[in-house]
Simulated scan of single mutants.
Amino acid sequence: MRKAKFGKCLEEGLELFRNDTIRGLWKSSRLIVWPDLYRMVSFDPKDRANALELVARVRPVDHYVSIICDQHEVAVILPDAIWNDKNTSVNCLDSHGPLACLTFDVPLDIEVAGYLQPAVNCLADAGISIVPQCALIYDHVLINEKDRDAAIFALTELRQKALSDETYPN
């Protein structure tokens, strides 16, 4: 396990939360650590059917899955086991994993600005690279498996700062 080294974010007590609304969201936020490992796979847009077939194998609720389609690629995040157990050779542009998936279990209104910023800053200060994934209501981050424990520690400490009696300007 890699121990997180915290920079300015948690050690120097700099302003972590943009305002009391963001701090309140962090107070009520719960971190979900998905039990499986994940893989991010990039497909050429013309191979979208292959990506969708893999996504269809993922059991909803039991596993995290994400798909993003744009003009450059079809990017899929799916359980590593599904990628490793595919029965056929699938053409992909690139893949990366294993990754750990963390979900911030607090419903966010689309108008909220700045909720993820404290997490991004603290994880960056700890030297942890992230792949943020924002859905309509919940936010997630994917991190290298080797950084999972350090990320959990950093995010737990961040929430503890939100729960503390420190006040933040509006």
Rank of each mutant, 00 (worst) to 15 (best):
R2T: 04
K3G: 06
K3Y: 07
A4Y: 06
K5E: 05
K5F: 06
K5Q: 05
F6V: 15
C9R: 11
E11W: 04
E12N: 14
L16I: 06
L16D: 07
R18I: 15
R18N: 13
N19Q: 10
T21I: 12
R23I: 05
R23C: 10
G24D: 15
L25E: 02
W26R: 09
K27D: 01
S29K: 02
S29A: 11
S29M: 11
S29W: 04
L31M: 14
V33T: 13
V33F: 08
W34G: 01
P35L: 12
P35S: 14
P35C: 05
D36H: 15
L37R: 14
Y38W: 03
M40C: 15
D44I: 05
P45N: 03
D47S: 08
R48L: 09
L52M: 12
L54N: 13
V55T: 13
V55I: 15
A56H: 06
A56V: 05
A56F: 04
R57D: 04
R57Y: 06
R59A: 11
R59I: 13
P60M: 12
P60Q: 09
P60G: 10
V61P: 02
D62Y: 08
H63K: 02
Y64R: 07
S66D: 03
I67H: 01
C69L: 11
C69P: 02
D70S: 12
H72K: 15
H72F: 15
E73D: 02
E73T: 00
A75H: 01
A75M: 08
I77G: 00
I77P: 00
L78S: 09
P79G: 06
P79C: 07
D80Q: 14
A81C: 02
I82P: 00
W83N: 07
W83E: 08
W83Y: 13
D85Y: 12
D85T: 14
K86L: 15
N87K: 11
N91E: 03
N91V: 01
C92F: 03
C92R: 00
L93N: 02
G97I: 05
P98T: 04
C101Y: 05
F104A: 06
P107T: 10
P107G: 08
E111Q: 10
E111N: 10
V112E: 10
A113Q: 07
G114Y: 09
L116I: 15
L116H: 13
Q117M: 07
Q117Y: 07
P118L: 08
V120K: 08
D125Q: 06
D125S: 09
A126E: 04
G127F: 04
G127P: 04
S129N: 15
Q133G: 04
Q133S: 14
C134P: 01
A135Q: 15
A135G: 15
A135E: 15
I137P: 08
V141R: 01
L142M: 10
L142V: 07
L142G: 07
N144D: 10
E145P: 03
K146N: 08
R148F: 00
A151Y: 03
I152F: 03
T156Q: 03
T156W: 00
L158H: 05
R159Q: 09
R159A: 04
Q160E: 14
A162T: 08
A162G: 14
D165H: 07
E166C: 06
T167D: 14
P169S: 10
P169Y: 06
